[in-house]
Design a protein around this nucleic acid. Sequence first.
DNA 1: AGCGCATTGATTGACGTACCTCAGATTCGG
DNA 2: CCGAATCTGAGGTACGTCAATCAATGCGCT
Lengths: 341, 341
Amino acid sequence: MGRVTVHQLAAEAGVSLATVDRVLNRRSGVRPATVERVEAAIQRLDYRRDVAAANLAKNRTYPICFIVPEGPGEFIRALEAEVRTIAAHPGSSRVEIERVVVPAFDGTKLAEALKVVDPDRFIAVVVVATDAPKVRGAINDLVDRGVDVVTLVSDVPTSRRLHFSGIDNTAAGRTAATLVGRFMHRKGKVGIVAGSMLLRDHVERRMGFEQVIRNEYPGLELLPPIEARDDAALAEAELSRLLDRHGDIGGLYSLGAGNRGVIAALEKSGRRDHIVAVAHELTEDSRQALVSGTFDAVINQDAGHEVRSAIRVIQAKADGHPLIPGQERIRIDVFFRDNLP
Amino acid sequence: MGRVTVHQLAAEAGVSLATVDRVLNRRSGVRPATVERVEAAIQRLDYRRDVAAANLAKNRTYPICFIVPEGPGEFIRALEAEVRTIAAHPGSSRVEIERVVVPAFDGTKLAEALKVVDPDRFIAVVVVATDAPKVRGAINDLVDRGVDVVTLVSDVPTSRRLHFSGIDNTAAGRTAATLVGRFMHRKGKVGIVAGSMLLRDHVERRMGFEQVIRNEYPGLELLPPIEARDDAALAEAELSRLLDRHGDIGGLYSLGAGNRGVIAALEKSGRRDHIVAVAHELTEDSRQALVSGTFDAVINQDAGHEVRSAIRVIQAKADGHPLIPGQERIRIDVFFRDNLP
DNA sequence: AGCGCATTGATTGACGTACCTCAGATTCGG
DNA sequence: CCGAATCTGAGGTACGTCAATCAATGCGCT
């Protein structure tokens, strides 16, 4: 039973409630010997602070600032929706979320947005980060000003951010490579449609993918990647050109957004059944492409899980709680036609 | 701001605190017109009850009984560990968990265990269910006595359980079939190592697997499944015999526990590189088998997620909260060598 | 007018913790 | 042994909600 209260603690330790309180909240003015007696009692009774009551007494809230890129992409929209869902959920009523929107792919604007975050208003910032020196500096400044920073989806590992809430993108790229490599029965060429090489997650996916294809599938030839800046129209045009030029493309990895364009190009080419295509992010488009057979696998990160995890990490830090190992590991979801949710 | 309190509500509605309380807690003795006024104020101010404070006032706890099968299996041990982790975590301090262990594969004993659950002591039971009529009856009886029941890992869908916390096992079987089918480059025979056909999850996995192999990979020949009752030694012996008899086995699906035996048989046969093997549950054994190449893919369900989800569902029901769509969907995790956590 | 009844108000004491004040006790240096 | 500094106790208020009591109001009815 967690039914031990401070009163019982005080009785057990033979001190007053005030002293127990001083010890529990590390206030000064208690002799070391007395501190020890109280701590022994804590051990003996297995006392655990009632967090809910404590938060109530402190009238504590968790004001968090979410900084997300703007853009019409389905993934970003899903992220926003998840943030809203959390904010509205009664279970997380003490979490107060403010959203800030910045232009996508713009390190300078992002750094500015980070700079104007008020340390008195927010205990933490959750940010979809572009990995630019300015951004790293802004993150570190924020941390110095006492605001915890959690990176979402795309990391800045060299910064002093508290946590990264996202997937291991190198592993995601390797997984895509394994799927492409093993699903392709004959030799052939493999194309890559990338988003922006400014985003660390895209760079890492490509790295992981190319590494495995080169090392383990020597029969496959990697074509230079298309940079489509997550723009569906651009992706479609460029990919169509690539497909025209190389009649023997047998595999494709679409590692950014802009799936709509990739799907269109594949279907127009009339070769979708002969090309093993692996893409990222499960959206309505990519889901249909899976069902129709245009895509053979889709790698996904669960935006809801990422948002909730970020918040849990921030709360745990604020409350001085441990995290549950495993709960905050964001999975690399692999979807085929057969296991669509 | 969610900072609206009952006091502000009372002021806004022009009634007293007592009346607000009566409306909020659906107590009688308030005129319909007044109820409406208060509810209008709730809407206007976007009042949400502070769950923490409410639980504190009610001194509410969530006593839950976990009924899990005994057995040396790594998955069951992992389940137990997760239950313990949750119970010890300060965040879920009002959750009081009692664990009951019953013999595996024994519907009668399980039904008995369900029968003796005290409805006054527990608000809910979480149970790894075998799908037997007796068990279904016992679950329904419990529900009638006012105890919510959540099935874990293995479901009894025809019962009146509140929720099933586990994966879609048919989809898992289909996924395994897709992997086996697409990884096998030539024609060949496909073996199945099953656990117990008393467990609904095993039956469903096999169904999904066979269905896809038959429909989509006509070049593959399904061998009759081995029933190994999750016993490693038995699995090894039977699988070795099967491998001896059929020199042209190219694929294998191990859908139950007992991976250790499957791995041993595969490695002894010397044909592990020529057999595409897909198994269930990521354990230390199966993880090593993935790395060494004995297994080509492992399908997993996250025991921690399942346990936490079950508890969340129960709490939400008890508090009358909505669930967050998506958070309680247990994923079918697919692991390759490349995306091992 | 007087009765009972339904409705509402006012107030109070929990729940477990935080934080504050003030007074009393103990210790220590000189 | 005295004064000062340090420790400790006792008690209060607050956080937002629940739950209960008791008094007050207004209503219809006889």
